[in-house]
Design a protein around this nucleic acid. Structure first.
Lengths: 371, 371
DNA sequence: CTGAAAGCGCTTACAG
DNA sequence: CTGAAAGCGCTTACAG
C-alpha cells in the first residue's frame, strides 16, 4: 500500500498540513468571496433552499460558473450522513442478464442523481456476501442493490447490510427483502405453453443452476414449465440440469439427442439453447424440423442463430428503473418497504418452433434428415 | 429531491444538529474511549503508522472488533483529499468485451483496496465525455478509467478530467493519454495469417464501426488484416462495414454470399461472425467447407456455434490488472506517465477454418453442398 | 510512543 | 433574506 512521502518542508510552522504547492480546487468559501456573500448562502443556492433573493442567487451562480466550482461530495456526505451513492453487488457481470440489469440500474441512478459503486460477487455464500457488503458499507453507500440469485432467506445479506436500504434483483418475490424481478414462473409458462400450443405432446427442459438454497430464476422457470405441462395433462419428463453456460446446454443436448421421441425443448436461457442447438445439429437432428427449441433472454445473438431463436424476453431496463424507485422509497422512509415489484416477461416468436414431425406429413421438413 | 423533516425537538439548546433518536454508528472516538486512548492513536493503528506499542495496538484492535467499528470513508476523504475510488466511464457495457474489462478493472481495484464508481457512456462526443466525466469528478474519484474507443486525441477527455489520473482501455497506443490495450493490429494479423496459411488466396473482412475520429479497435484490426494480406502479396478486397452487432454481420454475410470466389472471411468480432455464419447458411453456403471464418473475442458462445468458431482471444482480466497498475502509478507520482501497456492477443483454433475448396480434392467436404 | 489542536469543505439550526 | 457558529469523523504535523 502506498504511503505518502514525508513532508519535504522543514518544520516551519505551517498553518495547514496540506501541500501548499498543489492548486486546490475552488471551495464554497471561494465562491462566497467572489459573490460577496457567506458560504452558507452559497450552500443555500446550491441546494435550492427556499428563501434566497433572486439577485443573490444570480450572483452566486455567476461565481460558481466563473470559478468552475464543483461541490465536494466527501464534505457533503460527512455533513449530511448521506453519500448519494448506491452500492451494487453483482454476480456474473459478464453474462447478458446481469450486465443488462447493471446497466439499467446505472442509468436510473444517474437520472436520480445517484452514483453507483460496483463490487463483484463471486458467490452467494454468507461469508462472501458479508465481506463484499462490508466493502460497500465502508465506502459509505446509502443503499445496496444485489444483482444475484440470493437465497430466499437472505439472512446473511440482511445482517450484513445492517439497517441499510436493500433491494434484490433476482430474488424470490416472496422473500424477506425488498425486490424487483421478472416473473420467472411466467417465463417458464410462456415458453412451454408456446411449445404445447404448437402441438408438442410434451416439452423437455434444460434448467439453470439450482443450489441447495434455491435459485428463483432457475426454480421459477422450472416451476412454470412444470405447471404448463401439468395444466394440459402432459407428461413431465425429468429436467436436465444446466448452469447457464453454452457448454451445459451442449451436454444436455447430447443426452436429448439419444432419447426417443424428443420433439420440443425449453432451455432456461439462450446460451444453453445455443449449446443444445449445436449438440442436436452435430447428430444431424434439425431445429425446428425435428426438434423445436425455446430459450430465455433474447441475447443479441438469438435472432441470428440458425434458425433464429424463439425466446422469452425480460425488460432489464425496467428492472433497473423499478429498483431505483424501491431504493429511493426506502431511503426516504428510512425503512424497508417489503416491496415486491414483479414484471411480466414477453415471448419473442422467431423460427425455432414448429409443429412436431409426423403431424403434418405434407410439409417439406418431413424429408428425412440426411447428413 | 428529499428534504429532511424539520427538527421534531423544541428549541432546547442541542449540542448537535443530528437526530438524537437515530443510533449513529461507532466513530473513532468511541473506539478510543473503549480502548482508553486518544482517537489519534486509533487512527495510527488503523493506518499502520510506525510507532505504536504492541499493547496499545492490541487494545485498539480489540475495541474496533468489539464495537464493529468501520472507518468513515467520507471523513477520511475529506481529510486526505483522496477517496480511494476509481471512476469508470463505460460504453456498451452489455457487450462481452466491455463487460469483461469492467469486470477485470473491478477485481483489480478491489484487490488494491479501491472502490469503483461506474457511469455509462452513450457516446464519445466531446460534450457527453465532458458531462459524464464531470459526474465522476463531482463524486470525488481519484482517477478515471475509460472503457471506450475514444478518439486518439482525446482532447475533450483530458480537459474534462482536469489533472486527474486518466487511463483509456480501448484507445490508440500512440495517443496522448495513458492507456492499456490489446495489440489490435496483431489481432487482425493473427486472424488473417491463420486463414492465409490455411491456403486461402485472400481474406474478406467485416469491420467494426469506424467513426470520423477513428476507432483503434476497429481500425487496428483492419490494418492488421491489410498488412497480413499485403505481406504475402495477396489482393486486398474492399472491407465490408459492420458495427459489432450480429445484424451487421448478417448484412455483410448477405453481400459476401452473392460474390464469386469468397473462401475466407475475418469478422472483427464473434457476434458479427455469428451473423455472417447465419447469412451464409441461409444461402446453403457451408462453413468451413465452402467458406472459412474467423472472429474475435472468444465469447462463451463461440465454442458452441456450428462449427465451433476459430477466434482471437484477448485477456481482459490482464487489461484490468494492468490498468490498475497504471492508475496507481499516476496517483502515486501525481502525474500522467504516458504509459502504454500493449498486450498480445492469442489465436484460438477451432473448426471454422479449413483449406479452400478445390485444393484438396480428396477431402470429404468437396462433396457439393446440397440443400 | 502518544495526546492536544487545527483543518478538510460542507450543512444545519439559530439568530438577526 | 442572510451571517456566525458548531459539528460531521477523520488525518496530520507538532509537542511532549
Amino acid at each position: 500500500m502506498p504511503r505518502p512521502a514525508p513532508d519535504p518542508l522543514p518544520s516551519v510552522a505551517a498553518p495547514s498540513p496540506r501541500r501548499p504547492d498543489v492548486v486546490r480546487p475552488p471551495a464554497m468559501t471561494d465562491v462566497a468571496t467572489v459573490a460577496g456573500v457567506s458560504h452558507q448562502t452559497v450552500s443555500r443556492v446550491l441546494n435550492d433552499a427556499p428563501s434566497v433573493s433572486p439577485r443573490t442567487r444570480a450572483l452566486v451562480l455567476a461565481a460558481v460558473e466563473q470559478l468552475g466550482y464543483r461541490p465536494n461530495t466527501a464534505a457533503r456526505a460527512l455533513a449530511t450522513g448521506r453519500s448519494r451513492t448506491l452500492g451494487v453487488l453483482c454476480m456474473s457481470g459478464t453474462l447478458y442478464g446481469p450486465a443488462s440489469m447493471l446497466s439499467g440500474v446505472q442509468a436510473a441512478a444517474r437520472e436520480a442523481q445517484y452514483g453507483v459503486m460496483v463490487v463483484d460477487l463471486p458467490s452467494t455464500d454468507a461469508e462472501v456476501l458479508h465481506q463484499r457488503t462490508s466493502l460497500l458499507l465502508k465506502q459509505g453507500v446509502d443503499a445496496v442493490v444485489v444483482i444475484a440469485p440470493v437465497p430466499s432467506s437472505a439472512e446473511a445479506l440482511r445482517a450484513a447490510a445492517g439497517g441499510l436500504p436493500l433491494v434484490v434483483l433476482e430474488g424470490e418475490p416472496d422473500g424477506e427483502v425488498d425486490g424487483v424481478c421478472v416473473d420467472q414462473v411466467a417465463v417458464g409458462r410462456l415458453a412451454t405453453e408456446h411449445l404445447v400450443q404448437a402441438g408438442h405432446r410434451t416439452v423437455w427442459h434444460v434448467t439453470g443452476p439450482s443450489g441447495p438454497t434455491g435459485h428463483y430464476e432457475s426454480d421459477g422457470r422450472e416451476a412454470g414449465w412444470r405447471q404448463a405441462l401439468t395444466d394440459v395433462g402432459a407428461e413431465v419428463p425429468p429436467p436436465l440440469p444446466g448452469d447457464w453456460s453454452p457448454r451445459s446446454g451442449y451436454d444436455a443436448g447430447q443426452l436429448l439427442v439419444r432419447m426417443a421421441g424428443v420433439t420440443a425443448v425449453f432451455a432456461a436461457n439462450d446460451q444453453m439453447a445455443l449449446g443444445v442447438l449445436r449438440a442436436l445439429r452435430e447428430r444431424g437432428c434439425r431445429v425446428p424440423e425435428d426438434v423445436s427449441l425455446v430459450g430465455v433472454d433474447d441475447i443479441p445473438e438469438a435472432a441470428y442463430l440458425s434458425p433464429p431463436l424463439t425466446t422469452v424476453r425480460q425488460d432489464f431496463a425496467a428492472v433497473g428503473r423499478e429498483s431505483m424507485q424501491v431504493v429511493l422509497a426506502q431511503i426516504e422512509s428510512g425503512a424497508r418497504q417489503r416491496a415486491r415489484v414483479v414484471l411480466a416477461p414477453e415471448l419473442v416468436v422467431r423460427r425455432s418452433v414448429v409443429p412436431p414431425l409426423g403431424d403434418h406429413p405434407g410439409r417439406s421438413w418431413v424429408q428425412a434428415s440426411v447428413r
